[in-house]
Design a protein around this nucleic acid. Sequence first.
DNA 1: CGAACAATTGAATCCTTTCAAAGGGAGTGG
DNA 2: CCACTCCCTTTGAAAGGATTCAATTGTTCG
Lengths: 203, 203
Amino acid sequence: MPECHVISLQKGMVVYNQGDPARHWYEVVSGIVRTCRFHGDGHRQLTGFYYSDDVFGVDGDAYSETAEAVTPVLLRRYSAKCLDEADSVAGTSKVLQKALASARQCIFLFGHRTAHARVAAFLIAIAERADAGDGVQLPMTRSDIADHLNLTLHTVSRTISDFARRGLIALDGPQSLWVLDLDGLRAAAGDTGDDTFLFRESA
Amino acid sequence: MPECHVISLQKGMVVYNQGDPARHWYEVVSGIVRTCRFHGDGHRQLTGFYYSDDVFGVDGDAYSETAEAVTPVLLRRYSAKCLDEADSVAGTSKVLQKALASARQCIFLFGHRTAHARVAAFLIAIAERADAGDGVQLPMTRSDIADHLNLTLHTVSRTISDFARRGLIALDGPQSLWVLDLDGLRAAAGDTGDDTFLFRESA
DNA sequence: CGAACAATTGAATCCTTTCAAAGGGAGTGG
DNA sequence: CCACTCCCTTTGAAAGGATTCAATTGTTCG
């Protein structure tokens, strides 16, 4: 896995644009990145949030999505050639597996039928990968979350408020919350327990 | 890519179950396969339909989904070990790329906001990979389509009927149709033209 | 022919969106 | 330091769309 450059980007900056030739793929060192597709009718679909050690930008020829910094980020940039030359380069498979796991996480969220279920599943997912130090951070906007869950920002806001009202979570400003009742959230999501069948590592 | 067995399954039969150890992955020779996740609340999410040359069952440790035959199918079964041993085996990367492309196709469908848009996008996708010989075949049930698009079978049925009423398609029984107005369908989907940025092969 | 299953359609309900407005926090400039 | 602006968030009310409940039709298979 050669050709690794480290890149620093400020909040809101673009890593690459949908349609650009996919010359690199990226690994998050710190901060959060979002990837989005823009549909023909102009609306935005957010296909993932990427945290430390997550990879994004794994595409064949041209990028299928735009990638932007949600917070200030540090990235490692790798040459995409090693994905084309493929199996000769060590670690390629792991990168693709990570990309696949990210895609499945997105699909998993969409599998939930109602706004309450989708938002609950999203909060659980965020809480699970958060450092769990002092509460769960939501650095992305309500609009980002909405475009990720295929809802409007109003519905997202209402639903989060409702969870707080019902005592499932406690809000500490719009970007920070505590999970008070994980089982209650899981019930709202319609998921039993650990059905996070995404891409279980075996090695 | 060693250890290839050919398997024949009748309509409705299970290839593997969600949660089973992922000892093999599969390639469709003929027929159609569906993969589904069952959520905690019992409802089914259909994560993909697989046609000739598509691959499915690419998982790390345990299968994240159940796979079933939609029609009678012929499959090639490969040992999953080559995915774990990974980069040493030639062709591994291509398999993962195909799996990633399938996942992105699913995400793409969900990116559409309304029932009309999702059904239209689905029909376009099916029509594109159909042999285009004598119309588009829909061997799966309305319920399958509904669980794939996160709609009810009623809404799917109504929407398809509506497309037929508006002259975008012509129905020849529930399982067969012609696309009369592809641009009209695309407009209904909210997609301009070829924004099928999924996983463009470069090699 | 009857039974079982799939698809279609109607009507009422419920949920999400849309339209509209107000509150809150960060940053700038007077 | 305060006022002002801008953007994000929250919340209300009305409108629209999908689901639910219910019934009918059509097809396949025994």
